[in-house]
Amino acid sequence: MSNERVYEEFCSLILEKSSELAHEVTEIQTKKYPEMQSISNDLLSMREELVSLFAKSFVMSDEDRKKNFKAWGKKAGTQCATLNASLEEMLNEFPEYRTILGDLLKMHAKKNDLTIDGFYNMLNILETDIGDVTCYFSLPFVDYQADQLRNSKEALFELSVPVIPISDEIAVLPLVGDIDTGRAKLMLEKALEKSAKLKVKYFILDLSGVPIIDTYVAQIIFQLIDSLELIGVEAKVTGMTPDIVQTVVNLGIDFKKIQTYSSLKQAINTINGSETQRTV
Rank of each mutant, 00 (worst) to 15 (best):
M1D: 12
S2Y: 05
N3G: 08
E8Y: 11
C11G: 00
I14D: 07
A22N: 08
E24R: 12
E24H: 12
I28G: 06
Q29H: 00
K32Y: 04
Y33A: 01
S38V: 11
S40E: 06
E48M: 07
L50C: 07
V51C: 04
V51T: 08
S52N: 12
K56D: 04
S57W: 01
M60C: 04
D62I: 02
K66I: 07
K66V: 08
K67I: 03
K67A: 07
K67D: 09
N68K: 09
N68W: 00
F69I: 01
W72R: 01
G73K: 10
K74D: 14
K75D: 13
G77K: 05
L87P: 07
L87K: 01
L87V: 13
E89K: 08
E89C: 11
F94M: 05
P95Y: 09
E96W: 00
R98W: 07
T99I: 13
L105V: 00
K106E: 14
M107S: 14
K110P: 05
N112S: 04
D113N: 14
T115V: 10
D117P: 02
F119P: 01
F119T: 02
M122E: 03
L126H: 03
T128G: 11
D129V: 03
I130M: 02
G131A: 04
G131F: 02
D132M: 14
Y136L: 10
Y136W: 12
F141Q: 07
D143S: 11
D147C: 08
Q148R: 11
N151H: 13
S152T: 15
K153E: 15
E154D: 14
F157S: 13
F157V: 00
S160M: 10
S160G: 10
V163R: 02
S167Q: 04
E169P: 00
A171M: 07
P174I: 06
L175N: 06
G177I: 06
G177S: 05
T181V: 13
T181S: 15
G182D: 15
K185R: 15
K185F: 03
M187T: 11
E189R: 14
K190G: 08
S195I: 03
A196L: 05
K197M: 04
K199Y: 03
D206Q: 09
D214I: 03
D214R: 08
T215I: 02
Y216P: 01
Q219D: 12
Q219V: 01
F222S: 01
Q223L: 10
S227G: 06
E229A: 14
E234V: 10
A235H: 05
K236W: 06
K236I: 03
V237F: 10
V237S: 12
T241G: 02
P242R: 07
D243P: 00
I244Q: 11
V245P: 08
Q246C: 03
T247I: 05
N250P: 01
L251S: 09
D254R: 05
I258Q: 09
T260R: 04
T260I: 04
Y261I: 04
S262C: 08
K265S: 13
N269G: 03
N269S: 15
N272P: 00
S274H: 09
Q277C: 00
T279M: 15
T279F: 13
